[in-house]
């Protein structure tokens, strides 16, 4: 079943220099293991291909049911150097949530995941 990340998580993003951070937080605690399994460094790097110029780092916060991603080379130099509208990475959060996951039907049903429209 195809499931939108938007329906599984909420998120907030910010900046440190030319790096954007995106914190992805499971909307239900029981959905966190799925996010931790699916949102790999490779998957997120693929998602942001053509958007960022550097690599991706990932940290787990099971206590907050959250993952933190650092997206390097995301902000055209960042801070005052950047010419981008989103120079401080404020909306990388919702850009991340555009991701759509393929979840096995049985798992999606048992977790009560909403299907992508």
């Amino acid at each position: 079943m195809r499931v939108r990340l938007l329906d599984l998580a909420h998120a907030r993003s910010g900046d440190k220099g030319d790096t954007a951070n995106v914190g992805v937080i499971a909307l239900k605690p029981e959905w966190y293991p799925l996010l931790a399994r699916e949102l790999t460094v490779e998957r997120v790097a693929m998602h942001f291909r053509g958007v960022i110029t550097g690599g991706v780092q990932r940290y787990e916060l099971p206590n907050l049911k959250a993952l933190n991603f650092l997206l390097h080379g995301a902000l055209d130099g960042g801070g005052t150097l950047s010419l981008k509208t989103d120079a401080q990475g404020k909306v990388f959060s919702t850009a991340m949530l555009r991701m759509v996951l393929d979840v096995p039907d049985a798992e999606a049903t048992s977790l009560g995941l909403p299907a992508a429209p």
């Binding site: 909420h10 998120a11 907030r12 993003s13 910010g14 900046d15 440190k16 951070n21 914190g23 937080i25 940290y59 916060l61 907050l64 049911k65 959250a66 933190n68 650092l70």
Partner: peptide, 15 residues
């Protein structure tokens, strides 16, 4: 959720 969103704001290595 509102506090968690702020906790992850501008986060680097959470450890």
């Amino acid at each position: 959720p509102t506090v968690t969103e702020q906790l992850v704001y501008e986060m680097g290595d959470p450890h």
